[in-house]
Amino acid sequence: MNAIEIRNLNFSYTSDKKILKNLSLDIKRGSFVSLLGNNGSGKTTLTKLLVGLLSPDSGEISVEGVLLEKKTINEIRKNVVIVFQNPDNQFIGATVEDDIAFGLENRQIPRDEMLKIVSKYASLVDMSDFINREPSSLSGGQKQRVAIAGALALSPKILILDESTAMLDPKGKSEIISLIQDLRKNMPELTIISITHDMEEAALSDRILYLKNGEIVADDSPDNLFLNEKFVEENHIKLPFIYLLKKELNKQLLSSSGNTIEEVIKNVFKN
């Protein structure tokens, strides 16, 4: 079953420049997909189209089997949530708990139920101790965790992370990455789409889509994509370090297996 089906999607802001060109794409339910591409390649536009913040020039989008139209926007938004880049600009509530509750209030969830949901998701993102805190007293990573909690509280089927780690320091980044790993374990039905520049992050996903000038130029697993030397060179992709290491070892005809630096080096010396 596909979570997202896109057929022949076209979009442009102005008539002279097409942002997305005849894009077609299926995303499997429960998968973790990374969307890569340089700034201006159309990644963010694509996510905005997915939730109807923009409407396409032509083409079709179906989310969880529902065709995106004006009258189905609300239904689709119940299934898709987006966590954006800037931690400050998506913190709506006055405190952590108010922010997590914001979407629930919009859905008119009764208060008793809201209290339970808020405390559940606050503890899921490990923010239970900060429930009364105001955003100005939180770190970027903490704010992003709250944003994720606020999004997941709506029990969506698809979570889109739109460069959610780009503005965070290394600590915040690793907090979010390990949170995503946890989600994958505990919510296997959740489809996660992550837009990112960070190749180390992309290496963790099941599948990478590479967008260039509004077209998907690569659609493959991280292993295949990062070991495709021609593609990597053409697109100036900065390889995740582990792939760089394997590539160099390969060149010297040394063994290059393993998923972490520790494993790879161990295997080199074993053989």
Binding site: K48, V51, L53, N74, R77, K78, V80, V81, I82, F84, N86, N89, Q90, I92, F102, G103, N106, R107, A147, G150, A151, L154
Partner: peptide
């Protein structure tokens, strides 16, 4: 960005 975030969360 804020209005996008609010809209996506169903406001």
């Amino acid at each position: 960005e804020l209005s996008n975030a609010m809209e996506v969360r169903g406001y």
